[in-house]
Amino acid sequence: MLCALIMAGGKGERFWPLSTDEKPKQFLNLLGDKSMIQMTVERLQALIPIERIFVVTGEIYKDLVQEQLPDLLEANIIMEPIGRNTAPCIALSAMYIKKFYNDAVIAVLPSDHLIKDDEGFLKVLSVGGNFVKNKEDAIVTIGINPDRPETGYGYIKFDNEANGEIAADSDEIQVLPVSAFVEKPSREKAQRYISEGNYLWNAGMFIWTADHIIELTKKHLYNTYSVLKCIDMSNPQIFKEQCKIKYPLVDNISVDYGIMEKAENIYIIPGDFGWDDIGSWFAVERYCNKDEDNNVHQGKVISIDSKENLVISYQKPIVVVGTDNLLVVESDELIFVCSKDSISALKDIKKKVLEQ
């Protein structure tokens, strides 16, 4: 039974000041009239019914999830009392989902990725789900064909000499054995990966059975497993109360470090469906319409003798004159202006501003 688990607990600090601790980027309309999480759920419903879609998020975001996803069952919102990285979050969710669907195959997906070709993505998801259903000790991850030497993503190396050993081939969608997970590289290494042709971007999307990821957690993160197995998931109120007490005791570790780097029988499906993780303001800029001076404007913006600016207004008009390469954002709390060269330092800038 194919289910989806959408991870929606991130703070999105690289989109400050629009993204805040109270309303992070997955709940913002960055690329249109729908939020990132709304786009994610809408995309999935062509393959997976809403009753088999689950969202794991911070307890403080429950109301936002319900507001933006009114058709999602309240029981399908899994709440973390505190963020402890992806490995315990996924294990907790797998144990929870298994209470509803004992034979669950779970597709773990971020809430804030852009996918242009929904049909192509769902075909990949379906092939991966069927593969795991037939090979229950396997993990399938979805990799993205790189189109530039990106240094901000991890890479996954697959076995390009596995001719005749391809695990599955459906409508030219291949499932290939993984050789290694690679950390974010230097530009030189990233260029070499593209030239070698058997490296894909790690998009953080995984497919496995609930039983298998629980067993892998028990094997590689026993402390996390032993904490989570003692949480009573049969009653929502008891579940919430016990999570508050016990969940902080799990390991604070990502699923990549905690499990993927130690697991066996990992496979990858190369994806080419217009993916982007929308990880910074530069990503938003890539997908928005530009004027003749290469400016991106959202809301009420007047630009005079200015170019290469990204300006976002929600209430008051913003006028920019004789300026180049700026990020200008109006939020509920402030108006923020910085050089685009400073965008990479937004986390530090946010910290300094909030200390004032």
Rank of each mutant, 00 (worst) to 15 (best):
T40V: 03
T323V: 13
S313K: 02
S234K: 09
H297S: 14
Q174N: 04
L30A: 07
I349W: 05
L122M: 05
I213K: 01
M79R: 12
I156G: 08
A167L: 11
Y257K: 13
Y101K: 04
S226V: 06
K116V: 10
L31S: 09
A94I: 04
S170Y: 13
L114H: 11
N223D: 11
N29E: 14
I231C: 08
E22I: 01
G32A: 03
E150I: 09
S226N: 14
N130R: 13
I335R: 10
I78W: 06
Q315W: 04
D348N: 10
T86G: 02
E67P: 00
Y199H: 15
D33A: 05
D112N: 12
K240P: 01
I48A: 09
G129Y: 10
N294L: 10
K133H: 08
Y247G: 04
N130P: 01
G154Q: 12
I266K: 09
N134Y: 03
K300A: 13
I115W: 12
I194M: 15
P70V: 04
L72I: 08
Y193L: 06
P110D: 02
I238P: 01
L28M: 09
V175I: 15
K135I: 05
V250C: 10
S35G: 05
E161P: 00
E292L: 11
S254M: 04
I245W: 00
I48G: 10
Q66D: 01
I194T: 07
N295F: 11
G322L: 09
G32V: 04
D332K: 14
K135A: 09
F27T: 07
M39W: 02
Y199W: 13
G83S: 13
I166N: 10
D33M: 01
F206Y: 15
V255C: 02
P81E: 08
I245N: 03
P317G: 09
S35M: 08
L122V: 08
V296C: 11
V321C: 08
S303R: 05
I173W: 04
V56N: 13
I115V: 15
Q356G: 08
W201K: 13
V320D: 02
G129F: 08
E308D: 15
D324I: 10
I78M: 09
I82P: 00
F336Y: 15
Q298G: 06
N163P: 00
T323R: 06
I139R: 06
P146D: 09
S179T: 12
P88F: 05
L72V: 02
V56G: 06
I278N: 02
K246F: 14
